[in-house]
Amino acid sequence: MLRYILKRLIQSMITIFLVVTLVFLLLRLMPTDYFFTEDELMKLTDAQMEDRLRAAGLLDPVHVQLGRFYKKLFTEFDLGTSRRLQVNQPVSKVIGSKFGISMRLGLISLGISLLVGVPIGILQARYKGGVFDNIGIAYTVFVNAVPHLVFYSLVLTLGARWLGLPSLYTMRNPGPSSILPITCLSLVSISSYMLWMRRYMVDELNKDYIRLAKLKGLSTTKVMFRHVMRNAFLPLAQYLPYNILLTVGGSLLVERFFSVPGLGPLLTDAISRYDTNVVQAIVMLYASLGIAGLFLGDLLITVIDPRIRLTGKEGVR
């Protein structure tokens, strides 16, 4: 097991390294015009621009730049400074100031969706084919088929028009103004928890050991909670760490839509303004979180279900 973890860790490191290098190289392919503001592009002469670029080290051969980047990262744990978004602030500070907001919204909505979505899914499976089940299915179809942006717009209009909630996020008033973003996040993820919980429960209910348990005379509640639920929750549990970790990253669309100053829109902003250090840091963050999330998920299910082994003949799923 330890060997497996170690092997997986090394693999993850390699993946992150490859991704970051790839992004680094891609960023160097972009025209250097992006380095300057439009104002500077008008005013500066070609010689001045070249001086600036040379000072920033952008005219060196790519492998020299790459070497410098990694040297700085591994020796000083320094990701560099932001050049355009928050001028001369260390990148870690730029990200640090934002991820709290994203994480708060994300964790609250994740909690709500688990608390609401999972029980609804269980009830749907319990009363399969009934009115409640059909309403639930209609809801999941609606959320899945309608573009999220349209859905958010509907929530926004309803919430702001009839409930008088603030339609944009403000730092001065974070409580009430985060109600609508959280609602949007939750309503979408509730539907996916409902869908999968119901799906796995129904699959599980048709298995032979459940029939045996019923024949033995166990009560429905007992069968549901002791047997079906524990097995059905397993596939969801696998993605739980991933979902928790990625709340840090925030939701790009929701945060843009409600002007939440979170981490979500930071990446697109950083790329469009050629703030290379920020882009590299965010890509590294997302990649590490994603990989760590999947890894922790795999470990978590081996803890929950002792039958699952990550090593051995079957190999990793």
Partner: peptide
Amino acid sequence: YNFINNIPTIIYMTLIALM
């Protein structure tokens, strides 16, 4: 698959769109 899937697609899309 793992390599591509480990990173949110939106990152690739943003990079491609702007580059």
